[in-house]
Structure formats: C-alpha cells, structure tokens
C-alpha cells in the first residue's frame, strides 16, 4: 500500500518536473504573445535559436533580461511586417555576429568545434587499439620459454644474490 502511494508520488513529482520545463524561468511574458498562433510559434522557434547577450547561456526565449525581452518584441514585430524566419535571424546575426546564434553554423572557423568530439573519439579508439595490441605482444613475449643464455644469466644472478 505505502509502496503504491510512494510510486504515485514519484510519478507526480516527475510529471511536475517535466511540465515546469523551460519558459518557467521567466522568458516570454503574456503581453508579448502574438494573437496569431502560427506567427507566435515561429517567433518561439527563432527565440530559441538566439542567445541572450546578457545571460549568455540562455536563449532570448527563456531569458528574463530586458534586452532579451526587447529582442523578442523585435523578432515579433519583424515577423508581423512579413519577414521570413531566415530574414529575422539574418538581421540579428548581422548586428551581433554568429555569437548570437546558439547553434553555431558549420564554417571554416567552426570545423574544429563541430568535428572535435568525433576526432577525440577517433584518437581514443586508436589509442585503445594500439594499447591492446601492445599488451598482447608483451604477453606472448612473456610466455616464451627462456633461452639457454638467459637461463645461465638468471642462475648466475641468483647465485650472486646476497643471502
């Protein structure tokens, strides 16, 4: 019985946690929301792509900074004037540079950024393969019986050992 209550409580907690999600921490205010749901959905999409310049690890969609609010309003105004999503994004990027995009574009200056994880994974794989192979060879080496010369050396050494 208690167990069932506990698991129900856990499910409820998880559900609450998931529901709270983003948007809970400030972000889009009721007075900013456009009456046209399609336009508003596009504005949200764009807002999630743009970095808030004040609190740099949030998108303008989730930030409660004043500059982020003004940027959201600007995005909505531009959409209402008939700009495409691309045009709105391009405008903001033309003002702040690629830094303002939360997903950096794939270009010469960002090759390393995008390929870095794959390169590191590859280097790691190579290192593991080399290591394992070397170890196998050492093990073979160790399993080889001693030659007569080695046996003689070993005997001499043991004889010389101080008691």
């Amino acid at each position: 019985m208690t167990r069932r209550v506990l698991s129900a409580a856990a499910v409820l907690l998880v559900a609450l946690f998931l529901l709270s999600g983003t948007g809970h921490a400030g972000g889009v205010q009721p007075d900013e929301i456009l009456s046209d749901p399609a336009l508003e959905a596009r504005a949200r999409e764009i807002g999630r792509e743009l970095r808030c310049l004040v609190c740099q690890n949030q998108s303008i969609d989730e930030s409660n900074a004043e500059l982020a609010r003004d940027m959201r309003i600007l995005v909505r105004a531009r959409l209402q004037e008939g700009d495409t999503d691309r045009e709105v994004l391009d405008y903001v990027v033309s003002r702040y540079g690629d830094f303002v995009r939360l997903r950096p574009p794939f270009q010469t200056s960002t090759y390393l950024l995008w390929c870095g994880p794959a390169l590191i994974l590859m280097a790691g794989t190579i290192a593991v393969v080399v290591f394992v192979r070397n170890r196998a060879r050492t093990r073979d080496d160790a399993a080889r019986p001693l030659t007569d010369a080695e046996r003689a050396r070993l005997a001499a050494l043991l004889r010389d050992q101080p008691r």
Partner: peptide, 13 residues
C-alpha cells in the same frame, strides 16, 4: 526606450 537602436548597433550592455 525599446532597444531598437541598441540592437541595431549590436549593443549587449
């Protein structure tokens, strides 16, 4: 008042 110029100038603070 509404940051239009600030955004146009790429101002962050």
């Amino acid at each position: 008042p509404d940051s239009r110029a600030a955004i146009a100038l790429g101002v962050s603070g």
